[in-house]
Structure formats: C-alpha cells, structure tokens
Write a protein that binds this DNA or RNA. Sequence first.
DNA 1: CTGTTATTTGAAATTAAGATTCATAAATAT
DNA 2: ATATTTATGAATCTTAATTTCAAATAACAG
Lengths: 282, 282
Amino acid sequence: MKSLLTKIELALGQLSAAERRIGEYIIQQPDAIPHMTTKELSEKSGVSEATIIRFCKSIGMGSFKSFKLALMKDLALSDTNLTDFSVLQQKDSPYDLFHKVIHVNKSAIESCADSMDRKELMKAVDALKAAQKIVFFGVGGSSTAAVDAQYKFMRLGYQSITSLDFHYMLSLIPHLTENDVFVAISTSGQTKDVLELARFAKKRGAKVIAITNLNKSPLYKEADIRLCTPNVEQDFRIGSTSSRMTQLTVVDTLYMSVFHHLGENVLQQYYDARKEMESLRR
Amino acid sequence: MKSLLTKIELALGQLSAAERRIGEYIIQQPDAIPHMTTKELSEKSGVSEATIIRFCKSIGMGSFKSFKLALMKDLALSDTNLTDFSVLQQKDSPYDLFHKVIHVNKSAIESCADSMDRKELMKAVDALKAAQKIVFFGVGGSSTAAVDAQYKFMRLGYQSITSLDFHYMLSLIPHLTENDVFVAISTSGQTKDVLELARFAKKRGAKVIAITNLNKSPLYKEADIRLCTPNVEQDFRIGSTSSRMTQLTVVDTLYMSVFHHLGENVLQQYYDARKEMESLRR
DNA sequence: CTGTTATTTGAAATTAAGATTCATAAATAT
DNA sequence: ATATTTATGAATCTTAATTTCAAATAACAG
C-alpha cells in the first residue's frame, strides 16, 4: 500500500502552484501537521485556507479533518518520524515548539538504546549496590542529572551526595575509599571540573562511573565504568535539552536496577517515615 | 499499561452524577465516540455540552479533541497490545530494566500532548517573556525540574531563582512584585510547601504558573496559569520518574519559546562570555 | 434551624475551526 | 484583441468546541 506521503509526492506534478506549495510543506514537516489548523497551515505554507481545503480534495480526502487523521495513522505506522527535525521555523508558535520538543526528547531517549553497553551497565549496578557512599557530580546542564540521581539514591537509603560547588567536592573526595563510587556526569567528557574531580576520586581508590557521550574523550578513557549516552545533535540553541534526557534515562536505569535488587520494603520504609514527618510538620 | 477505558471505569466513583453518566455511556459505546461532536454526545448521554468538556478534564485530558484522539489510539492498539510492561519481572536484568525505562519515559513524554492547553501555554510564555524575576519552586522529585528551569532561564539572561529551602523562599517572596513570575512545580498539586509559597507569591502580586497534573488539586485551582502534565501512572516503586520527564518537557518548551522570541544572539553572548571565563580560570 | 459557602449543572454567549462563496487576476484559447 | 477558463485568496458562513454565568443543590458553620 502506498503511503499518503508518497501519494502526495506523486500528485505534486498534477497540482496547481499554490497546492504544490502545500504539498511540499507537508512532505517536509509531516509530523507537525496533525495538530495544526487550516489557519496555521495556511500561514506557514503561505497560501490561503481555501486552497488547503482544495488541496485535501485534490488528493482524494473529503475534508481537512479526514486528511489529518489519515496522515496521523500513516505516520504512526511507518514510523518515519525520524525525519530530521532540527530546523526551527521563524513562525513557530509555543505550541509548535511544544510538539517539536516532545519529538526531540522522545527520539533522544529512543537512541539511548544504541549507545549503552550491557556489560558496563551490569558492572555499574554491581558497584552501586555494594557502595558505601555514592557521590554524583555534574556541572551546567549535567547538574540536573546529578541532583536527580542524588535524590533517588538517598531515597533508597544510601549515603548519597552531590553539590554544584567544586570546592565543596574538593573537601569531600579525600574521604572517599575503595568502597565508594564517584559518578561523573558530563556530556562532552571534557569538562575540566568533572574530569579533575574524577581523577582525584580515582586516586583515592573510589570506583569512577562515567555517564558521558560515546566518544574518545578524556573522561571516557579514564573512567572505570562507562555508561554511554548517544551523540545526539548538540544544537547550542536547544542546549543540553536532549543530552539531559538521555542522562536521566541512564540514572533511572541505575535507580531501578538497584531498587529492584534491594526489594520493595526499602522504599516502603521511606514512605512510612515520610508520612509521619509530614504530619509532624507545623 | 492501563487503557483509557479502564481509567475511566476507575474514575467513575470520583465523578459527579452527570459526569458519571457520560463515563458510563462511553464505556458502553467506545467505538462510537471518536466520530461524535460534543453536541451529539451530550444529546445521547443526556447531559450538557459543558459537562462533557468538564468530564474530559476530570479524566486528565486537556480537551475533547485530545480525548477523542487518545481514545482512538487506544482502540486501535487494543489488539496489538505490546509487551505488557507494567509488571517488573523478578528476573529482570539491568539491561531489561533499561529498555523498560526507555519505554516508560518515552510514553510519558508522548502523553504530554494530551494534557497541554494551547492557550495556557501561550499565556505562560507571554508572562515569562515580560518577567523581571522568575522564581521556580518544587520539592522532592519535582525539584529536578525546578533546578533545570532555573539554569535554563539564567542562561537566557533572566534573574532566575530557585532553592530547595522553604525558609529561603519565605524570605525571597516578599520582594516579588506584579512584574515577577512564580513557577510552582508539583505533580500532585497538593504539596503543602509548594502550595503555601504559591499563595504567598500570589498575594504579593506575582503571576503564578503551575506545572502540575491535570486534576482538581488546590494548586490547579489557584494558579493564574496552568500548564498541565498528564496523569501518568504513579507507581511508587518507579517513583516520580515519569512525571519528572513530563515536567522537564514542559520546562523545555517554555525555554525554547522564550529563547525563540529573544533571538539567537542572547545565547551567543552567554557562550562567548563563558569561553572567556573558562580561559581565565586557574 | 438558618444563613453562608461551595459544588454541580445546563443555557447562553463566545471563540475558534472548517468549509463555501465570490470577485479578481492570470493564463490560455479563439 | 477578446472570450473563456482556471487559480487564488478575502470575506463570509456554518458548525464545533469552550467558557461564562446564573440557578439549583448540597455541605457546613454558627
């Protein structure tokens, strides 16, 4: 069966100038169409609303609504949503951007599967399970993952530490031993602060786990255990948005694995205690 | 994973009389709904159109349209039910868990589209654009989003503030004015600390934006602007993993929208300055 | 009880989306 | 050069979705 998009492509020749404009626009950004209105689409593609309705009829759809539905079904099936999405259009409204963000974040997470090494992951989980102290460190965009990880492992009963302050860390690391784990988070693997602290921690005998892009960076080379995030396009406009999603996915995995090993009762304790605290407050 | 219909069935108890009527009608004739208009459905189920809209919000859908779409997807998928994922198997290896986490996170982000209201989003972006100070607050799992947001808006040149410390916030809020924005982040919308600070900020005249689940929580009701996250299944074992992903997606959208408005040069400045700092250090 | 407040609800009004009409301009044929 | 067809968008109309508002009812405090 021919996909709707192929059909449009073939039809392009037969269409009038304005209708062709719409067709081309749709082929470029098929994922964006289903949540658009005729008005939006008309503005973005530079034709009138009337022409859009005519376009739908031209390619054999009874109404704009049917067209959107058909397109949606099509996209869901063919999974062509890998269409390069990078371009931000000048006229994008917040709602457009919202859908683009959803798409970018989803595909970032999806591509996590490619870069992860099964054995390294297992090693990391084993190390964390056995750890006495766990220290997380990341700066800039990567601090989000560090903070999140710290919180999650604290909930599991670990002595779990993080700070954004380099000097705080400098004072902390001397107390690490070979029973402890230092988790260094850096997308590029080249961030000076992270690298230096990781080296320091390693010198103290702690196991160093790196959550970093799959590449030949210093951090990648020097870590004991490497949990790799995919090299998602680092658009400086989008910032670290995508890489943060991948880092968090790795963190979630570590958390789930350790939690799964410890058993449910651990968290139950946490919740019971928390409830009590809640009732005490004020 | 729970189907939309199961979700409705479970919600029946909580709903008001009229809303329950709709719910029951939908459960009886699910296939018929996607083609109906609010008017038709209101006639058939014997309630007003307004109640139908309210029903959609009650079960966590941003609009009647989103509801119909979600229902359609649900019905289409019900046969091809993928790996039932909800249960964690005893023998799951870290690598298995990794793939489950990927799946859960992806679908959480996907369902963001259902609960977001286009107009509220626009209002939020406008408010942020015009803001003098922006304060983010979230505790527990939601602190991650607050920290991330604070960082992102700082990069855009805003006076952007967050802290985990309730008392720090208490000292900060008196200085807010009607030119400022307070962003309250809470999945449940019932967290005491968040709620109290949001009220306080509102009293000071600041605009209150809530990033919270679509439900009838106090925070939802009292906020000036509501950015709703979907009611993803809250398994206490998985923790706030999914809801954090949805919160971050909302934050990303706000960031992208404001950035897109300000123009690229803003961030360029930030990067230039940062490079210089880097070279100065040590 | 009684007055007060919150909740539920549908009628009516508003807003937004989609489809149609019609005048105009360009292309083509005669 | 004139008539005829075709393509197009502005304005209009129609329908659908959403919000507002006021009445009715339920819950509650004094």
